[in-house]
Design a protein around this nucleic acid. Structure first.
Length: 329
DNA sequence: TGCCAGGCCCTCTTTAGGGCCTT
């Protein structure tokens, strides 16, 4: 049995249970390793429960064990790093970081989600903030090594994060702290293994017949082209109900509007402007997702933007391709 | 030998150049 087909079989598990899906994946890998006689581990870093915006605080009881990996990993590293570096084994024991869960309780994304709830015309939208870490800037030559998502409606399974095995060296560990050793392991999912799970996760967050708006900083020029390229590499099309929103033009708009001390449009400058403290290593995907979720709420408030405005400012995969073709011509 | 990411925005702009943003 090939690993790829094995992963696809996971799509048969019920929707809305991505948590179980992750467990199932672990168990599947475990049975697979038993069958093949190989020592496979599962290191899926994601789909944990964050109680946000009215979501219930729950204890995550997925079988896991903690393993700090990488150069210079010490106990003095942040809680976030410990969480992100945990290694999930099919037969290990429970270890939940309650402090991390408590921290997440403090995050509020009320404005946008409230608008979705109150406006029937917008109730079909799902807003997901996401971020990727990569081996470099070139979408053609570099690979994604970490991906994190947060559905702003909160509740159970509102976040998804995982390392990705790029099957190549990681030359820029000094940026994000993710080393070749951490990702180039048989147990870390490759992109081709991850894509069906990722698609299933997003489907589980969608409203019936609704669109999904993916939000990232510099999404148009970096994150989205990377995602498109990775999916195309494995002949997977971007679902037609996926829209993308870039917060970088919103930051430019804020500067143009005046009345702000913001001098740069970087994520770090926006964090500083809004006094958002980084709990963990900046340039790790979920840390940046959490920060951007708060920044999005503040930006839309400052610019007096409604969700309708954000929908108008969003773009599709074909918008990117068309603008590329226009430039070629 | 030359290239090495690429799209957007601004300007000492106008089809060019440079800076910014993402890892």
């Amino acid at each position: 049995m090939k690993t790829g087909s094995m992963i696809f079989s996971l799509l048969h598990v019920p929707r809305f249970r991505i948590q179980s899906l992750a467990n199932c994946w672990g168990e599947t890998f475990h049975s697979f390793s038993t069958t093949c006689g190989n020592n496979y581990n599962v290191r899926l870093l994601g789909s944990r429960i964050y109680g946000l915006q009215g979501g219930q605080r729950k204890k995550w009881t997925r079988p896991i064990t903690t393993n700090i990996e990488g150069k210079g990993s010490t106990k003095s590293k942040s809680i976030k790093h410990e969480i992100l570096s945990e290694t999930i084994l099919a037969n290990a024991t429970v270890n939940v970081n309650k402090r991390q869960l408590d921290k997440s309780q403090e995050i509020q994304y009320c404005d946008i989600q409230q608008e979705i709830a109150e406006n029937k015309d917008l109730s079909s939208y799902t807003v997901i903030v996401f971020d990727i870490e990569t081996t470099g800037f070139s979408r053609e030559n570099e690979r994604i090594i970490e991906i994190a998502l947060r559905d702003l409606q909160g509740g159970e399974n509102s976040t998804f994060q995982t390392l990705v095995n790029p099957q190549c060296k990681v030359p820029n560990s000094h940026i994000h702290g993710i080393t070749t050793h951490m990702v180039n392991k048989p147990g870390v999912p490759r992109m081709e293994d991850l894509i069906p799970i990722l698609l299933q996760y997003v489907r589980s967050r969608e409203k019936p017949g609704g669109d999904v708006i993916f939000v990232a900083h510099n999404a148009r020029c970096f994150d989205v082209p990377f995602i498109i390229n990775e999916l195309r590499r494995y002949s997977v099309e971007i679902p037609p109900n996926w829209l993308f929103l870039d917060t970088l033009p919103l930051a430019r708009e804020l500067i143009k509007s005046g009345g702000t001390t913001l001098s740069s449009t970087s994520l770090a400058a926006l964090r500083d402007l809004y006094g958002i403290k980084v709990d963990g290593s900046a340039h790790r995907a979920m840390v940046d997702v959490n920060a951007l979720s708060l920044i999005l709420s503040r930006l839309t408030s400052d610019l007096k933007l409604t969700l309708s405005d954000l929908v108008k400012k969003s773009f599709t995969e074909s918008d990117i391709i068309n603008s590329k073709n226009k430039k070629k011509n």
